[in-house]
Simulated assay, not measured.
Amino acid sequence: MEIGVHLVNFTYPGGVAAIAPTLAAAGRAAEEAGIDNLSVMDHYLQMEGAGLGEPDAPMLEGYTTLGFLAAHTTSVRLQLLVTGATYRHPGLLAKIVSTVDVLSGGRAVLGLGAAWYEREHAAYGVPFPPVAERFERLEETLRIVRQMWSDDDGPFEGRHYRLAETVNSPQPLTRPHPPIMIGGGGEKKTLRLVAKYADACNLFAGPHSAPEQVKAKLDILAAHCEREGTDYGRIRKTVTWSDAITPDAAGGAELAERLAAYAALGVTAVHLMPGLAEPVAFLRGVGEHVTAPVHAL
């Protein structure tokens, strides 16, 4: 099972001046730890009520951060977990992810979701349509990025987006395109979109989501794949581990034991969150105590 680390906090000792050197060190530590994927959130404001600080806490723009991490890493895959469909125009989003992929040597992943954090949309004046429209926009975004990452550079006509051209130069290094991950477990819409457009799904796992619940979601995904004519086996099944872990010997062994049930379901990657922990120390602890037992699953 592969391991990702999802950075969710940018409040570090030393204040704002410490953010860049801490992230640079985190990139190096991730590779030394054998981490497969390094991700950050795509938010304008810190999430209120998540125990990570108030909305006025430091929060970096996601793709700028990935560009910085690309310069301080050489092998780890890079993504946002996940980009809200409302945050950027789809054509621009395809261009941005292409740029990250080219500058990182082919290591970009596109994570997508329908978006949910209404407060930050209002704060920045970004439209936040009703949920049904957000899913319509998410599907059009998926269609647009796939077209821009193909040989078709013609127009796109959708209900919400109209592009006169879908020229995208340079194209990503990753062929046929950077992997597309859709986050969320909505059974009628989200998992249908995974089956129709994506290369990976991302579900929540941990103390509030037992393996049986993840299995139920995957069974629904399999049914959507059958209806869409998609090979269920080619879709990577990933989970974000919502429980805090202690990256020591006992914590690593316990995590591997709990993840074994998910591996049996076909889950091939887990994303761990340091929470408020200092990220470099967390990553080093993962490398020393967690990577080997989880990779062995």
Score class of each variant (00 low, 15 high):
Asp219Pro: 15
Ala205Arg: 02
Glu118Asp: 08
Ala264Thr: 12
Asp153Glu: 14
Val102Leu: 09
Gly27Pro: 05
Glu157Thr: 14
Gly105Glu: 07
Glu54Gly: 11
Thr22Gln: 08
Gln213Val: 09
Ala26Trp: 06
Arg119Ile: 03
Arg227Ile: 12
Val100Pro: 10
Gly49Val: 09
Phe135Glu: 03
His289Leu: 12
Tyr262Gly: 11
Val5Trp: 09
Val109Arg: 01
Tyr63Phe: 14
Thr268Lys: 02
Lys188Gly: 05
Pro178Phe: 00
Tyr87Asp: 12
His289Phe: 14
Ile96Met: 13
Ile182Trp: 08
Lys188Thr: 10
Val194Lys: 06
Ala263Gly: 15
Gly14Pro: 08
Ser242Phe: 04
Ala198Thr: 04
Tyr124Ser: 00
Thr83Glu: 05
Ala18Tyr: 05
Glu278Tyr: 04
Ser104Ile: 00
Trp149Leu: 05
Pro211Asp: 15
Gly34Gln: 07
Thr11Cys: 13
Arg143Gly: 04
His224Leu: 09
Thr65Ala: 09
His289Arg: 04
Ser150Met: 01
Ile182Asn: 13
Asp231Arg: 01
Ala244Trp: 14
Val214Asp: 15
Asp56Glu: 14
Gly233Met: 06
Trp116Ile: 02
Ala250His: 04
Ala122Val: 07
Thr74Gln: 15
Phe282Glu: 15
Ala20Ile: 14
Ile35His: 03
His271Asn: 10
Thr64Asn: 13
Leu93Arg: 01
Arg77Ala: 07
Glu139Leu: 02
Ile245Gly: 08
Leu52Ile: 11
Ala115Gly: 13
Gly51Glu: 04
Ala70Ile: 00
Leu283Asn: 10
Leu142Arg: 01
Thr246Gln: 10
Leu265Met: 10
Gly206Asp: 12
Ala222Gly: 12
His289Met: 13
Gly49Ala: 03
Thr74Cys: 07
His121Met: 13
Ile35Arg: 03
Cys225Trp: 07
Gly34Thr: 12
Ala115Arg: 01
Glu228Asp: 10
Asn9His: 15
Ala20Gly: 11
Val294Met: 07
Asp151Leu: 07
Gly206Lys: 02
Arg88Trp: 05
Leu191Gly: 13
Glu226Ile: 10
Gly183Arg: 03
Ala216Gln: 15
